[in-house]
């Protein structure tokens, strides 16, 4: 049960959150001119690092806001800066 720092509500139990996988996966600016292969990468291919992962969580049972954290996928440690307002900037 991780303690996840919601930048709006503070640290809360993992069960209050919904996981969103890798952060910063940008929707192609012009899908029509995106190749099938690039489109497949947008849809299905995500980083899967062993170590620090930049990922999205949504405080589903709280403020329902999405935010970004940097978590080590081996130790589950979340970077302390992620409780700060910087984490509020979130992109897919």
């Amino acid at each position: 049960m991780m303690l996840i720092p919601c930048p709006w509500c503070g640290p809360r139990n993992e069960i209050e959150f919904h996981y969103g996988g890798q952060a910063d996966v940008h929707y192609p600016s012009d899908p029509r001119s995106t190749s099938d292969e690039d489109w497949a990468h947008f849809l299905f291919f995500r980083d899967n690092p062993k170590g620090v992962f930049t990922e999205r969580w949504s405080h589903a049972a709280g403020c329902r806001r999405w935010f970004t954290v940097h978590r080590d996928t081996v130790t589950n440690e979340i970077h302390p800066d992620d409780s700060a307002s910087a984490a509020r900037t979130v992109t897919r």
């Binding site: 919904h18 969103g20 929707y27 999205r56 949504s58 589903a60 329902r64 806001r65 999405w66 979130v90 992109t91 897919r92």
Partner: peptide, 13 residues
């Protein structure tokens, strides 16, 4: 609702 919020907040903020 979660689907809409996701796209709204993270792709089209």
């Amino acid at each position: 609702l979660a689907h809409l919020e996701d796209w709204l907040q993270t792709e089209w903020p």
